[in-house]
């Protein structure tokens, strides 16, 4: 078989498995799968306004997934991506609070981006340091730091940044329109955000696939014990990778604040960090499929809101489909490995 064809066939196989599984599930609860898929499709691609909502999810999801890819390349499981996103959101909110009433809102938005990336990166670096010098596995520090991040955001929303007079789960006081990421008439997503996400995809494509750095990162990830023989420091590469990972998550968090919610809310990450992990796994840790899988997942997230509205079905079906995708993928990839081993 041609090597190009194989991923395509695998992809198709995964989709068929998911389709069968989900349809069986829907039939089991006496629901028409055709109707459900129709609603999912129309709810996500049915109009420009809906598709722009999909892009609104696609941007942070792609950024998180790209970030995760850097960590995976270095052999790290950056579970802390959720917390890094939250810290990015906190950094952005802090800067935008400073920009209230300023004559140069764009400057403050730019600063917010930098602050978000910086805080996300530092939060990730903390997990990296603990891994490298503390010997704590990054999965545990990542999970721990996620909890700390959520605690921090709740404290800020109910404490120092609470609305005048009222502390509320609704989050902080919304920012004035000047401090929203600029968008166009009829758009529900900022073109800048889309541009940023595309830029990150292209840069990563070059950095990970074409540059020397990418090659070395891969070497570190695949065999950290061997690389010192070539004069490479695995520690350095791991720290760089997880820092980049955190910076991208922080960027995603910033966009959630300035482009989507226009304020800081307790659930600011919307779970995109964890969803990003699924995206990257489904992409089999390769870069090119990531933007497309992220688009598919984003469409499921947005389209699934139709299910409770039109069919009184629970919208968690989208989560079921996403999970089924990853499980089927693991199954297919696993079978392929077995196939290779037994000629």
């Amino acid at each position: 078989m041609k090597p190009v064809l194989r991923p395509a066939i695998d992809g198709l196989l995964i989709l068929v498995l998911v389709f069968l599984f989900t349809s069986a599930l829907l039939l089991l609860v006496d629901t028409s799968p055709v109707e459900a898929y129709g609603h999912l499709l129309r709810g996500s691609f049915g109009s420009w306004s809906k598709f722009s909502r999909v892009l609104n999810v696609w941007v942070p999801l792609t950024l998180c997934s790209m970030g995760l890819l850097y960590a995976f390349r270095a052999g790290l499981w950056n579970i802390g991506v959720e917390g890094q996103m939250v810290l990015g959101a906190i950094g952005a909110t802090a800067v935008l609070n400073g920009g209230l009433g300023s004559d140069t809102p764009l400057l403050w938005l730019g600063l917010a981006l930098l602050a978000g990336m910086l805080l996300g990166a530092l939060w990730a670096l903390l997990a990296g340091w603990l891994k490298v010098w503390g010997g704590v596995h990054e999965i545990f520090t990542g999970l721990g730091l996620n909890f700390v991040a959520v605690g921090l955001v709740l404290w800020l929303i109910f404490g120092p940044w609470k609305r005048p007079g009222i502390a509320s789960m609704s989050g902080t006081q919304p920012f004035p329109r000047e401090l929203w990421f600029p968008t166009l008439e009829g758009w529900r997503v900022s073109p800048f955000a889309i541009g940023l996400a595309l830029l990150v995809v292209l840069l990563s494509l070059w950095l990970l696939q074409r540059s020397r750095f990418g090659l070395e990162l891969k070497a570190v990830g695949q065999n950290p014990r061997a690389v010192p023989l070539y004069g490479l420091s695995p520690v350095r590469y791991m720290l760089i990778a997880i820092t980049l990972s955190g910076a991208l998550a922080g960027l995603a968090g910033t966009l959630q604040v300035s482009g989507v919610y226009h304020r800081l809310i307790p659930a600011i990450s919307s779970g995109y960090g964890y969803l990003g992990l699924l995206v990257v796994m489904l992409a089999n840790f390769r870069l090119l499929p990531i933007p497309f899988i992220a688009l598919f997942f984003a469409a499921l997230n947005v389209g699934s809101i139709q299910l409770p509205m039109m069919m009184q079905l629970d919208s968690s079906l989208s989560g079921v489909i996403q999970g089924a995708c990853v499980l089927s993928a693991l199954l297919v990839f696993g079978l392929r490995r077995l196939q290779r081993r037994s000629p």
Binding site: R53, Y261, S269, S270
Partner: peptide, 11 residues
Amino acid sequence: PGVTVPMVVDD
């Protein structure tokens, strides 16, 4: 998560 009021209203 990720569902906002303006988004639902559009729909």
